[in-house]
Design a protein around this nucleic acid. Sequence first.
DNA 1: AACCCTCCCAACCGCTTTTAC
DNA 2: GGTAAAAGCGGTTGGGAGGGT
Length: 241
Amino acid sequence: MGRQPCCEKIGLKRGPWTIEEDHKLMNFILNNGIQCWRLVPKLAGLMRCGKSCRLRWINYLRPDLKRGALSEAEEDMIIKLHSQLGNRWSKIAAHFPGRTDNEIKNHWNTRIKKKLKLLGLDPLTHKPIEQPDHHKNDDIKQNDSSEKEEINGKLELPETLPSLDFPEEQQNIQNSTSSSSLDEMNESNLEMGSNELFQNSDTLETFSSDMYNPGLEDPFQNWIGSPIHWNLFGNLDENFL
DNA sequence: AACCCTCCCAACCGCTTTTAC
DNA sequence: GGTAAAAGCGGTTGGGAGGGT
């Protein structure tokens, strides 16, 4: 007997959201807040499941979302955080106000992973990828020029990798080959919380607060600048509210 | 112009964790 | 403490966009 579905799926709409749906959801949440996602679609007049509404809000409609491509500094910090937290995207995203876990995860899977591989690093462990012994040198020689070309051309990598300046004890764990010890490290880091975790390196608190346009104190200013064409919503009130 | 391929990202699925009773 | 429901999370996928042939 499996778990029951999160909602009654019959008759529910799926796929991309329309502007009308966005508008309904946003108006509902802005006017009523979120008490229970399961009730949101019903009360907002949407043929979506609550889960879908939650995702849409978090990943696209939230007023405080930061839009646009991730900067190189953000990318470097993602790499750094990933080396310490693993695939805990929500934890990583917590250090990037206005960015979503989905966005960071997508960016990791489509860009950063490749970048690390091209640099000969395992995206999982952040350690150099082991080459088979007897072809090791040949492979490196062969790949060297072509990959460098790609690195310098297509991907426009920085000259050097972001320095992963772990505290000493974390460095030791990083150098260990045991995956369980990596897990332990991650667990203990999580328990420590970010404040303590990064106290010995450039603090992420500083990073987080400095890097995000401190000029835009009000998140709604970001919202207004988002690529959603708000003027399209202008006449919808009459129709949907 | 038509086709193919790759990249990117929004959205879904299913599992885990948290909360409420 | 046990159970069910809700929320959260991470892996995966589908399809549109854009570039190459």
